[in-house]
């Protein structure tokens, strides 16, 4: 088990280096000189020269890449051009907001999604099933910003519709963000459970005289939830990396909002930092999913 995890962790290193290279390259070829971005008003030749040198902008591309990776390894993601603060510190300030929202949205989607999926599968083709699957489909297909605006409009005056200074502020964004995840999880749980219930070992369980409830809870659910757990692990990592639209609509100063402001300000180091942060979280989420998978499913376990 330990060996398996070590192997999986080692595999992520080249992936991460590749991602950094790609982002670094793309932001490098985007038009716009950083120095011009930073100091629009006073463009004196010697100042520009000086800045370019201190920022190592004239060095070859690959050297700058290596320097960036080396700094990043030590937790230094550079300095924001616009805000003139360390990118790492900016992300660290924004992350707690994102974390709160992500955890709330993930919990919401699990607590809603899994039971609804199970009930829908058990009561297949009932009114309950059609209703909840309709709501799920709605959640999955509606654009987040639209749902957000509708909810803001509906609940204004009852709940805070922007900011992040009280727990009530998180209710609407949680619903907006969690709804589509809940829908996805409910649909996945339902279809997996229905599929598992057709298996021979379910017939074996029933032939032992187990009650329908025990057949589902002891024999079907564990098999049906394996793919759901994978989706949950990946989903929480993408939630953690910042719900860009939701955070912007509800004015939550999280990592998503940070990325949006970086784009608006052409703040390359900040943008680079948030994207790499996202990549790390998603890689970690996948890793956790793989490990969880092998814990739950004995067939995957490496001997």
């Amino acid at each position: 088990m330990g060996k398996y995890i070590t192997k999986r962790v080692l595999v992520t290193i080249p992936v991460l280096l590749g991602i950094i290279l790609l982002i670094f390259y793309m932001l490098n070829v985007v038009p716009g000189d950083p120095v011009t971005v930073m100091m629009k008003e006073h463009l004196k030749e010697d100042v520009i020269e000086n800045l370019r040198r201190t920022m190592h902008l004239d060095d070859p591309f690959f050297l700058r890449y290596l320097r960036y990776v080396w700094d990043a390894l030590r937790g230094d993601l550079g300095v924001s051009w616009k805000l003139n603060r360390s990118v790492t510190a900016l992300i660290a300030t924004a992350f707690p907001y994102t974390l709160r929202l992500a955890v709330a949205a993930a919990l919401f989607s699990w607590i809603m999604g899994i039971p609804v999926g199970i009930l829908s599968a058990v009561k297949k083709n009932s009114l309950m099933d059609h209703l909840s699957m309709g709501l799920s489909l709605f959640g999955v297909s509606m654009p987040v910003f639209w749902v957000a605006l509708i909810l803001q409009n509906t609940f204004k005056g009852v709940l805070p519709v922007s900011g992040a200074n009280s727990w009530q502020c998180y209710i609407l964004p949680t619903v907006v963000l969690g709804w589509s995840s809940a829908g996805r999880i409910a649909r996945l749980t339902r279809s997996n459970l229905l599929e598992v219930m057709r298996n021979d070992y379910i017939r074996t369980a029933r032939s032992k005289g187990l009650s329908p409830l025990r057949v589902i809870s002891r024999h079907a659910l564990k098999n049906a939830l394996i793919p759901v757990i994978t989706v949950m692990a990946i989903q929480i990592s993408s939630l953690l990396s910042g719900a860009v639209i939701t955070e912007s609509v509800f004015a939550i100063p999280g990592v998503g909002s940070l990325a949006v402001s970086a784009i608006n300000n052409r703040d390359m180091p900040l943008l680079q930092g948030t994207v790499i942060f996202t990549a790390v979280l998603i890689i970690a989420g996948n890793l956790v999913a793989d490990v969880l998978y092998s814990v739950i499913d004995p067939r995957i376990r490496v001997e």
Binding site: D200, Y201, T204, L210, R218
Partner: peptide, 24 residues
């Protein structure tokens, strides 16, 4: 019927791979 199944009447099925629960 459940009191009889698995207790007084038992069954064995054809495919022993798929008839046993893979995760138990």
């Amino acid at each position: 019927l459940r009191k009889i199944r698995g207790n007084r009447i038992s069954m064995i099925f054809q495919e022993p791979m798929t008839s046993l629960n893979p995760v138990i």
